[in-house]
Write a protein that binds this DNA or RNA. Sequence first.
DNA 1: CCCGAGGTGACTATTACTTCA
DNA 2: TGTGAAGTAATAGTCACCTCG
Length: 232
Amino acid sequence: MMERAEDLGLSLSLSSSLAAPRTHVAAMLLRSPEKRFLEMPLLPAKRSEVTPEEGLRGGSDEEDGGCGLDGSRKKLRLSKDQSAVLEDSFREHPTLNPRQKAALAQQLGLRPRQVEVWFQNRRARTKLKQTEVDCEFLKRCCETLTQENRRLHKEVQELRALKLVSPHLYMHMSPPTTLTMCPSCERVSSSANSAAASSDRRSAGGAVISTAPAAEGAAVCHRPIAVRPQQS
DNA sequence: CCCGAGGTGACTATTACTTCA
DNA sequence: TGTGAAGTAATAGTCACCTCG
């Protein structure tokens, strides 16, 4: 965009220290076909339409480029050391200001544009991964809630059946011990307290959760208003 | 040796924001 | 003070290359 890759005739090379085959990757780098373009003059990629003046202008990163003579995209593989430094830096601050970018580039023997691209990709891929994790988490939440909902529906049906068969027994039995949470006020209530809570509601007007079978399995908050005794 | 999947460097298009005339 | 153009940075989407099983 702003930083155009029209740096004609610039060769892409790792600094000598980084080129040392200390790692598997670096070693491979030196013997693989990639090596050929590490020393290859770079031309604009699909930007063959770049005008001569653009080509000479040179972007803010005048070391831009990255493609071979045939116009294909050629990739530099970062060494483990370089990646580690970039990772550390990313953990510290996921976005770089120009000075940090330049410093990192110098430290790693890369072009600022490469550092910039690395951070762009890192942000994008981190976000993507996080989205996947979130999605997975929400899926599990959904499954759990669906199961819980099913269970509550079943419970309601059983209670209704019981009420029809023997109302006397139903009147005197202790309520189910289900814990429920009001979706609106998020107060958790044990339904064993519901009877007391009902009377409580009448007297104090506080928000309570109705666990009456008629609630169709959904916890309903009879919340007139948060009428809690003010603590003076 | 071939092939597909996954990782990753590089690029383009788009959008949002800032600055300045 | 409001406004449009230009510049800049970030992001989304994609391509291309490479490695690995």
